[in-house]
């Protein structure tokens, strides 16, 4: 198993090199000159050219990429010219905020969706099942922006129960975590429900009931574990996505995370920062997927790491 993990890790390096090339090319293909954006409209052409030389964007693409990768291998993700700070400092100072929000959002959504999905699967065709599917449909089609603004209006402005923006206390996390986890909870509810329905039709479930094992134990210990596998897959990719930060949610709630940093970097054509964020995000994704694959082997021993 350890050898296989090492082989996966080496494959990850190849994936990340590919991501770095794509990220590098994509940001430079987008229209917009970062040097011009940094300077006022009245700046002369000579000043703009001097800025390009300072940023290194006047050099051939190949040289720019090699310089960037050489620094990355030394642990230097470059300097953001817009923020005038190192990219690693910017990203890693915001990563804990995003991780907190992602973690709490995931916890909320799982705590809500798993019980709801289980009950819906067990009581298929009932009112609860209909309600859970209605919730799933709403959750997957509702706009994050609208939901966030409605929560602010109701719970912050009208009821004054929660703060409308910012960070600092547990209360600040509640609304953005609900929004960030809302869409995933809708998806997870559907997956748990369909997983439970499939598993409950299996012969071994009938056999466990025939043995006299209680319904609760059958549903939680025997059925749910097997219904969990598809959810674990989705959780893995969703954690990676949440850790990359939600640009919309972080902007609405003024949450100082990776998402809002990415938004600013793109607007300002901050090449170094965009590339670094993409590289870090890709690394997080890959690591999450690797962890999910390892987790599979514990949930279902029949599945080998291959």
């Amino acid at each position: 198993m350890l050898q296989k993990i090492i082989r996966r890790a080496l494959a990850t390096v190849v994936v990340l090199i590919g991501v770095s090339i794509i990220a590098f090319l994509l940001v430079r293909l987008a229209p917009g000159d970062p040097a011009k954006l940094m300077l006022p409209d009245t700046a002369t052409e000579e000043t703009i050219q001097a800025m390009r030389e300072k940023m290194g964007t006047d050099k051939p693409l190949f040289i720019q990429y090699l310089t960037y990768m050489k620094n990355v291998l030394k642990g230097d993700l470059g300097t953001s010219y817009h923020y005038n700070r190192s990219c690693s400092q910017l990203i890693f100072s915001r990563l804990p905020s995003t991780a907190k929000l992602a973690g709490f959002g995931m916890l909320l959504s799982l705590c809500f969706s798993i019980p709801l999905g289980m009950i819906a699967g067990i009581k298929k065709g009932s009112f609860i099942d209909t309600l859970s599917m209605f919730f799933a449909m709403i959750g997957q089609s509702m706009s994050h922006v609208w939901l966030g603004l409605m929560l602010i209006l109701i719970f912050a402005v009208n009821l004054k129960w929660l703060p409308s923006m910012g960070t600092g206390t547990f209360k600040h996390m509640i609304m953005p975590a609900i929004v960030i986890g809302f869409q995933f909870s809708a998806l997870a509810t559907r997956m748990v429900r369909s997983g439970m329905i499939d598993v409950l039709q299996e012969d071994y479930i009938t056999a466990t009931r025939a043995k006299g094992i209680s319904k609760f134990k059958v549903y939680t210990k025997y059925a749910f574990k097997n219904a969990l596998l598809p959810v674990v897959t989705v959780v893995g990719s969703q954690v990676g996505a949440m850790m990359s930060g939600s640009m919309v949610i972080e902007t609405v709630f003024s949450w100082p995370g990776i998402g809002s940093l990415t938004t600013q970097a793109i607007y300002n054509r901050d090449y170094q920062l965009i590339q670094s964020i993409l590289l870090i995000s890709a690394t997080i994704f890959v690591v999450c997927n690797l962890l999910v694959d390892i987790l599979y082997t514990f949930i279902d021993p029949r599945i080998s790491f291959n």
């Binding site: 603004l149 912050a156 409308s164 609405v252 003024s254």
Partner: peptide, 14 residues
């Protein structure tokens, strides 16, 4: 950044 959030923060007294 968000206009509506800024107005809400004023209305809540933040």
């Amino acid at each position: 950044n968000e206009d509506t959030t800024r107005v809400s923060a004023l209305r809540t007294g933040e």
